[in-house]
Computed example of a mutant assay.
Amino acid sequence: MESTGKAPIGRPRGFDADEALEQAMMVFWEQGYEGASLTDLTGAMGITRKSMYAAFGNKEELFRKVLERYTEGPASYGDRALEKPSALEVATAFLAGSVDTTTRPDCPAGCLGVQGALASGDSGQPAQDALIAWRDDARARLRHRFQRAVDEADLPPGADPELLARYIMTVANGIAVQAAGGATRSELQRVADAALRNWPPV
């Protein structure tokens, strides 16, 4: 290889960072934060620990990057649901998205946002904190959307946006736990349908 005469600024990454992050997401999704060892992660990512630290930081920083990727990818149904024209359609799309994402045949069962922190001890506290903030943000966004629905008379005046947001989040999280335990897509969709029968009439 002919030299350019310039000193190297740094060795180029010999791997696809997006693909490596995708593989790390799958490991965390399947094994949780504490269950995923650095050996598991680097093995799935196809890189050395040194390369992982250089590209993504430590395990905690890698998990935060994975959570961002999960939010923009498999969990992007949440953003799409918020754009629906009515509160009922928002709730319906949110729960349908939860059912779909937690039962995809090409992904681990359940939800990274729920599985990630199960059986988490002290060493998993940073991940636990990140996931609590992640779920709180999702609930807050649902609450704001449902408040808008009250203001627009799409929900009755006495409807409680915070309670409705917490209700939908609780059902969605329960769907994720049931999916991880082997419940099928059709079984979980029936759960979502049953939950929506309690939606306040306009």
Rank of each mutant, 00 (worst) to 15 (best):
E2M: 06
S3Y: 08
K6S: 10
A7E: 15
E19N: 11
A20R: 00
Q23W: 02
Q31V: 04
Y33Q: 02
E34I: 00
A36D: 02
S37V: 06
T39E: 12
T42K: 00
T42P: 05
I47G: 01
R49S: 13
K50P: 01
G57W: 04
E60L: 02
E61I: 03
L67A: 12
L67E: 02
R69M: 15
Y70D: 14
T71S: 15
P74S: 09
A75K: 05
R80A: 10
A81F: 01
A81R: 02
A81Y: 00
L82K: 03
P85A: 09
S86H: 08
A87Q: 01
L88R: 15
L88H: 13
V90L: 06
A91E: 05
L95Y: 05
L95P: 04
G97A: 02
S98L: 04
D100G: 06
T103R: 05
R104Q: 13
R104S: 11
P105H: 10
D106H: 08
P108H: 01
G116M: 01
A117T: 10
S120K: 00
S123W: 10
S123F: 10
G124K: 01
Q125L: 12
Q128A: 13
D129P: 00
I132K: 07
I132Y: 08
A133D: 13
R135A: 13
D137V: 06
D137R: 14
D137F: 04
A138C: 08
R141T: 06
L142A: 07
R143Y: 01
H144E: 12
R148N: 11
A153G: 06
D154W: 00
P156H: 07
A159F: 03
P161R: 07
E162K: 14
E162L: 15
E162W: 12
L164M: 10
R166E: 12
Y167H: 12
Y167T: 14
I168V: 15
V171H: 00
Q178A: 15
Q178Y: 10
E187F: 08
E187A: 14
Q189W: 07
R190P: 01
R197Q: 09
N198A: 15
P200A: 03
P200I: 06
P201S: 13
